[in-house]
């Protein structure tokens, strides 16, 4: 299994349940191994398998959760 890490800026989170909702949304995606969302830094570090999902899908999962996501790296 390949592991890549994507860093995303996530705007609009106000409390810990917001960041856990984003984490849950990301972990639901096939191919996502780990998702750690930092409320204070408004950032999400996602470890995923590039064969199973793409950074665009990561962004879409976060926007589906109702937050603004923009890929950092």
């Amino acid at each position: 299994i390949q592991r890549k890490v994507a860093q995303m800026q996530v705007r609009g989170m106000h409390c810990s349940s917001c960041s856990s909702a984003v984490e849950k949304a990301l972990l639901r995606l096939e191919g996502v191994h780990k998702a750690s969302v930092s409320l204070t830094m408004e950032q999400a570090d996602v470890e995923y398998d590039p064969d199973h999902c793409t950074p665009a899908q990561l962004e879409e999962a976060v926007t589906d959760a109702g937050f603004d996501a923009s890929l950092l790296s």
């Binding site: 609009g12 989170m13 106000h14 409390c15 349940s17 917001c18 909702a21 589906d64 959760a65 109702g66 937050f67």
Partner: peptide, 11 residues
Amino acid sequence: CGGCEAAVRRV
């Protein structure tokens, strides 16, 4: 919180 409300409203 307000952030959750805004998220639900946005989706």
